[in-house]
Simulated assay, not measured.
Amino acid sequence: MLATIGVFLAVPGFIALEGQGSTQNIITVLAAQGKTDPGFAYTVSDAVQKLPQSGALVGVFVFGHLIGTSILGMALWRSRAVPAWIAWALAVSQPVHLLSAMTGNHPLDLIGWGLTAVGFAAAGLTLVTMRDDEFDLPPGRTA
Rank of each mutant, 00 (worst) to 15 (best):
G140S: 06
T43G: 05
T116A: 15
A3C: 02
N105M: 07
L98N: 01
M130E: 11
V11M: 12
V48W: 07
Q24F: 09
V92K: 03
R78V: 07
T103Q: 04
T23M: 13
V7K: 04
V118A: 09
V11W: 09
A3K: 08
V44Y: 04
D37F: 01
T23Q: 08
T69R: 02
A101H: 08
T103D: 04
N105K: 02
V82H: 02
P139N: 12
I86T: 06
A75K: 00
P95K: 11
A143P: 04
L17Y: 13
Q33Y: 11
G119S: 05
P83Q: 06
T129M: 12
L108H: 02
A10N: 06
E134W: 06
V58M: 12
A81Y: 00
F14N: 06
G59L: 04
I5E: 07
T129P: 01
G19T: 04
D109S: 11
I5W: 14
T4K: 11
D46E: 15
A81K: 12
L125Y: 14
F40R: 13
S70L: 03
V60M: 07
T142V: 13
L72R: 02
N105I: 04
T116V: 15
L76G: 01
T129D: 10
A10K: 00
T28I: 11
H106L: 08
D136C: 10
G119F: 00
I111M: 08
M1K: 12
T103A: 01
F40C: 02
L115A: 07
I111K: 03
D133W: 11
G6C: 02
L17G: 08
P52I: 06
V29I: 11
A41Q: 02
L98V: 12
A122E: 05
L72C: 02
T36Y: 00
S100E: 09
D136L: 14
G55K: 09
N25S: 15
V92C: 04
K50L: 13
L66C: 02
M130K: 11
W85M: 04
T103P: 02
S93H: 00
P83N: 06
A10V: 08
V92S: 05
V29D: 06
A81H: 00
D133I: 10
G39T: 15
I71N: 02
R131K: 15
P52G: 09
T43Y: 08
F63M: 09
A56N: 14
S79W: 06
R131A: 12
A87Y: 03
D37P: 00
A41T: 01
L127I: 14
Q94G: 00
A47M: 09
I5A: 15
G64Q: 05
S79N: 14
I111S: 01
V7N: 05
F120T: 09
F135V: 09
S93E: 00
R80E: 14
A84H: 10
V44M: 09
T69I: 05
G104L: 05
T116Q: 14
F63Q: 07
Q20H: 13
F61Q: 07
L125E: 08
T69A: 10
Q24K: 15
F120R: 10
Y42S: 13
L76M: 15
Q20G: 05
A32H: 13
D37T: 03
